[in-house]
Design a protein around this nucleic acid. Structure first.
Length: 566
RNA sequence: CGGGGCGUAGCGCAGCCUGGCAGCGCGUCUGCCUUGGGAGCAGAAGGUCGCAGGUUCGAAUCCUGCCGCCCCGACCA
């Protein structure tokens, strides 16, 4: 393809609206343009990259035995009523009425549609297992779209759904998908980890997220430095300390005038934060519940939410705390607490700690669990910290940022039961399908790849997902010899099946070099002065900056070699 | 939805406080010149100053309402 004829509107300056590097570079390199908040047009270069990613996804999905389908984007609301998600999914599901006043919605995901398809067309265990996938535009009316392709409202997703006859089979399918995903992200040249994750609104029994490691990621993940343990913060298991074996001292009430925050109380009492238990009040679906936590720990809201079995937890305001407990916030404690109390596991290991006395300006010291108070339930409710130990091997943990590019769920029978999707098993019994679902944010992969591969000059695409493999710079469009060499090189490479972009624009060399760096094509061939003088073409690798000069007739072979090796 | 910021040429911005000819840089177009890291000179095109209303002799500027965009938070594959 010729640069002069392609729509590649590169920008010299960074658009003000772009905050993260992938967004900035996608705009500057002419890959995408915004239509409105969270909704983007893909220009030729952007689309080429998406197609590259899709190709890898298709190959690996097909290899894993999945079949490609294409499901409707517009879906009847009735189907969502049937699954119970019309309400549960919330305003993120874009709803509208058609001309006949029929309630419809734009598909944010396709569990309902696929389950409907399968229940109507698959009736026997003989057809199982079955794994169907599609690559399609999804629409989710995100509360706050941001960071360009990282969190759009409209985005391209590969979603797959599996149907198995047995638990064992479903687990095997899940593992197959996990392996396929690892191969996909490997082939995309990404540095990633598969982490234990919460199942969220999709539901199901367990799941893994595939996280690309990047500082601009929206999620924090915890990874073990010594073994392969990795988990989302919402799921990371906190290993509690050995129980403190000190002798229990008598409970004593002390005056702590105006000391409310952990830092103020511990300073006043001359103790460290790990010798204090704080009492946090949360509203769980509107009902107040107190959570006990070591002073230097934080509540992990999703753990709390799942533990309590509620849809929503929210930290109570000072006023709400007072209304619920009759105690001003800052002096709350478990002794004589009016609302239900749950405790983080770590609290049960502590001895002789300080707590609020449920009375303004007073705390207790040398409180002890069980002796001085009881709680309703105990669980791992806190946020893991970098000083925690790996639950698997006891090694040191690292907290790092990640971009979620894939998420796989073992759904179990949640949808097949809701939609009554059944098959006849070997034994003649009617059974519900055991399902799994598996998503990849294709457009997000492109953004994640850029977050991970760029420098001050622009994008550095890994070869497998670069829009093109090679760019040829004709530095003398008005010089017959240079132009002739560029053209013959261009057509020779194309003949060999190399994806090549010829910069045949009448621009000065500087602009061509800058643009080539910006758009991130892995190999750059320069035909210019040196060709006229010495008959050589310069080959430069975008990633390493390594330069080699070779005679014109050897270029194609050298390039083919380099592509094979990247 | 809460908090903050912004909206002036394709892009980046100044002008607004203190009302009085619509500006700058880059880009675009034409010509000359130049050709290995976003050159130079000369000329040109391009604006409903987000929209609506108000105040005023006069509004990009002051007031009111609305719309849109970005960031933080809550929320979310």
């Amino acid at each position: 393809m010729r640069f002069s004829q392609l729509l590649i509107p590169t920008l010299k300056e960074t658009p003000a609206e772009a905050e993260v590097i992938s967004h900035q570079l996608l705009l500057r390199a002419g890959y995408i343009r915004k239509l409105t908040s969270g909704i983007y047009s893909y220009l030729p270069m952007g689309l080429m990259t998406l197609r590259k990613i899709e190709k890898i996804v298709r190959e690996e999905m097909n290899r894993a035995g999945a079949q490609e389908v294409l499901l409707p984007m517009v879906q009847p609301a009735d189907l969502w009523k049937e699954s119970g998600r019309l309400v549960k999914y919330g305003p993120e599901l874009l709803r509208f009425k058609d001309r006949h006043d029929r309630e419809s919605c734009l598909g944010p995901t396709h569990e309902e549609v696929i389950t409907d398809l399968v229940r109507n067309n698959v009736h026997s265990y003989r057809s199982l297992p079955l794994n169907l996938y599609q690559i399609q535009t999804k629409f989710r009316d995100e509360i706050r779209p941001r960071f360009g392709l990282m969190r759009g409202r409209e985005f391209i997703m590969k979603d797959a759904y599996s149907f198995d006859a047995t638990e064992h089979g479903a687990d095997e399918t899940y593992q197959k998908m996990k392996d396929a995903y690892s191969r996909i992200f490997d082939r995309c040249g990404l540095s990633f980890r598969a982490v234990d994750a919460d199942t969220g609104t999709i539901g199901g029994s367990f799941s893994h997220e595939f996280m690309v490691l990047a500082d601009t990621g929206e999620d924090t993940i915890v990874i073990c430095k010594e073994c392969d343990y990795a988990a989302n913060m919402e799921k990371a298991v906190c290993v509690s300390s050995e129980p403190d074996s000190s002798n229990e001292l008598p409970l004593a009430k002390v005056e702590t005038p105006g000391k409310r925050k952990v830092a103020a109380v511990t300073e006043f009492l001359k103790i460290s934060a790990d010798k204090l238990v704080k009492t946090m009040v949360y509203l769980a679906d509107g009902k107040a519940v107190a959570v006990l936590l070591r002073g230097d720990h934080e509540v992990q809201p999703v753990k709390l939410q799942n533990f309590l079995g509620v849809n929503e937890v929210e930290l109570a305001s000072d006023q709400q705390v007072f209304d619920a407990t009759g105690v001003p916030s800052g002096y709350l404690g478990p002794v004589g607490m009016k609302i239900p109390v749950v405790a983080d596991l770590e609290v049960t290991k502590m001895k002789n700690f300080a707590i609020g006395a449920n009375e303004k300006n007073y705390h207790y010291i040398d409180a002890n669990f069980d002796r001085d108070f009881q709680v309703e339930k105990i669980a791992d409710l806190r946020m893991v910290t970098s000083s925690d130990q790996c639950p698997k091997c006891g090694g040191n943990l690292d907290l790092t940022r990640g971009i979620e590019v894939g998420h796989i769920f073992k759904l179990g029978t949640a949808y097949s039961e809701a939609l009554n999707a059944t098959f006849l098993d070997k034994d003649g019994q009617e059974k519900v399908f055991i399902m799994g679902c598996y998503g990849i944010g294709v457009s997000r992969v492109a953004a994640a790849a850029i977050e991970q591969n760029h420098d001050k000059d622009g994008i550095i695409f890994p070869m497998p997902i670069a829009p093109m493999q090679v760019i040829v710079l004709n530095l003398g469009v008005n010089d017959e010899k240079i132009t002739q060499a560029s053209e013959s090189l261009y057509s020779e490479l194309e003949k060999q099946g190399v994806e090549v972009l010829l910069d045949d624009r009448d621009e000065r060399p500087g602009s061509k070099f800058k643009d080539a760096d910006l758009i991130g094509i892995p190999l750059r061939l320069t035909v210019g002065k040196k060709y006229v003088k010495e008959g050589v073409v310069e080959i430069r690798q975008r990633a390493s900056g390594n330069v080699t000069e070779v005679q014109l007739n050897k270029v194609a072979a050298t390039v083919a070699d380099m592509i094979g090796n990247t």
